[in-house]
Structure formats: structure tokens, C-alpha cells
Nucleic acid binder design. Structure first.
Lengths: 152, 152
DNA sequence: CCGGTTTCGTTAGTGCGACTAACGCACTGG
DNA sequence: CCAGTGCGTTAGTCGCACTAACGAAACCGG
């Protein structure tokens, strides 16, 4: 990423919200990516584990809906998680089209580890903001996001 | 992207700032990308044109610094712009390692067109926020970003 | 109960932006 | 004059978002 004093950036680029978002998100992705790579994990892994922990065993399409991960991308993610015994994939007896994905104990432990490293990563990302500012930032982002995901 | 009511997303994912940023940025990228594609342009094209308009002719590495685009990616972008006569690339007589990139009149016109469509795109992206909220959002993002680009 | 439609998991492939490695050429400073 | 550094370029990786198409299973209406 550019490593030049930010003040030198052109005005209109500097102001443009989509660009601001993209670059800030990139920083976040970088910081989070580095944190997760220490555990050989990626954001999709965390998202799936978190969804399973919160909602219990689920089909792949349910996980896709809950995480925003595409069904097609989920296949590989689930393969990787299953290879490491963090989740298990079993056919659903009630609907043989479905797989039931469950979190293993190891998966639950892994999730806890990721939770703490991710917490620290968020902290590094938002370092310059105090708690109130962080709250308003997430609130504003949430509003923008819900607007676009609800009224697609 | 997920098209399920956002309320169903797991708590920790829903709150996580890096994720919020990533998803909101993705929405922005989608909206902006669609707007730009009407002009066969991408964000890099706009960034380069805007930087040239604001700072005047510059070397590729100067443009890279000012836009945050990697030197390596800039090559292709500049090829595409030059193919369409929006910019011109000439060797710098003072330093034969350098190219001097200049904006053509057509490039300037193109930039104006992109400016207006991008303005509209930003508006769609931030639709749910009023002017004050938009200002605080960009201010917060800018602070986070400067923090990470200054103290790389 | 049969036929059409929908759902589910899967494969394959695209697009885009961020980022690295390596190289050759040109400039700069000791 | 040689070492190191800066510049543009090529090539390639990685991660995420997203589309298309398909077989198998389930569901539904006539």
C-alpha cells in the first residue's frame, strides 16, 4: 500500500467514500489476515466456525446465508475445516440432498483462539479511535450495509 | 452477496469492524464498478486520471505513491489509458529511467464524465445517511486510514 | 404417480484488487 | 569506477466476490 504521507493524495480521491472504504477495508483485511495466518486460518474459516457456534449444526446453504459466503466458495472452506477436524460433514438423513455440518470440540477450541486474536486485530485496526467513535463507525457502517443487503 | 435479512447474521460477525468494513467496501466496489463499467473504466483508471488532473504530469512511481496503486499494477492501467488516448507516456529527458505521464484533452473530458457518474454512485452507496453522518463516516475512516498509512 | 420445478452440493471459471519477486536499465554518491 | 538505489516492467500469487452449469434428490400440481 502507498507509504507516502496521506496529505499528498489528490483531493477527490481522498474524499471519495467508496475509496476510503476500500482502502480502510484493505488495511483491515491485511491486519486480520496476518493475525489469522498465524493459525493457518482465513476469514471464511472464522465466519463458518462462528456461525456454527452460534446457530448449531446447519446445512451448507444455511451457513452460506448466515455468513454471506457463496455456496460455491463454501465447499472449499468446509473441505479445509474438515481436513483439520474442526468441523464434520455428514449427510442429512431427513433430506438426502443436504449435508449437516457440525462443530467438533477441536473446532470450538480453534474458534476461541481465533476470537481472541481477532479481537486484538480489531483493536489494532481501530487504534486511533476511542470507544465512542468505534461505536458510531460500526453503527454507520451497519446502516449502510443493511440498506444494501435488505433492498438488494 | 448474502441476500438474507442482515439480522440473522451471527452476533460476532455482525459486530466485527473489519468484516463490516469489508462488506460495506464490497457494496461500494460493486456499485462503483457497475457505474464505471458503463464507461469501460475501472477504479484504477479514475484514480490515475484524477491524480494527473490534480498534480499535473508525473512519473509512474509518483502516480503510484499518490494513488496507492502498486507500480506493477500501474503498468497495465497506463497501457489501457494510453490505448484510448486518455494519457500519454513519454520518456523523461532529464532522467531516462522515468516516463512522464500526461493527461490528454480526451482524458480530461473522460475524467469529468467519470466524476459525475462516480458522484452519483457515492450517493447511492451512502443513501441511508444524511450529510452530517456522511461527513463523520468519512472523517472516521480517514483517521483510521492515515494512522495506518503514516505509521506503516 | 408422473413430470416439471426447485433446492442442494459441487465443479469450474471469471474478475478485481492487493501484493511479491526478480530483472535490466539508468542514475547517484563515495 | 563501482556499489547501491530507483525506475519501469513482467510474471505470478492470494483472497474474496460472483456466475454458470450440472446431477441428484425433494417437492408439488394435475
Amino acid at each position: 500500500m502507498g507509504d507516502v504521507p496521506y496529505e499528498e493524495l489528490p483531493e477527490r480521491l481522498q474524499r471519495m467514500p467508496s475509496r476510503l472504504l476500500a482502502q480502510t477495508a484493505a488495511q483491515g483485511q491485511r491486519i486480520v489476515g496476518e493475525a489469522l495466518s498465524a493459525h493457518d486460518a482465513r476469514t471464511h474459516h472464522y465466519a463458518v466456525l462462528a456461525a456454527l457456534a452460534e446457530f448449531g449444526p446447519a446445512s451448507q446453504s444455511a451457513i452460506a446465508d448466515r455468513t454471506g459466503i457463496y455456496r460455491s466458495d463454501l465447499v472449499a472452506t468446509l473441505n479445509e475445516l474438515a481436513d483439520r477436524d474442526l468441523t464434520r460433514r455428514a449427510p442429512d438423513p431427513d433430506d438426502r440432498r443436504r449435508n449437516v455440518i457440525t462443530l467438533t470440540p477441536a473446532g470450538r477450541r480453534h474458534l476461541r483462539r481465533l476470537d481472541t486474536t481477532l479481537g486484538r486485530a480489531q483493536d489494532r485496526l481501530l487504534a486511533p479511535l476511542d470507544d465512542r467513535e468505534r461505536a458510531t463507525l460500526t453503527a454507520l457502517l451497519t446502516r449502510v450495509l443493511t440498506h444494501h443487503t435488505a433492498t438488494g
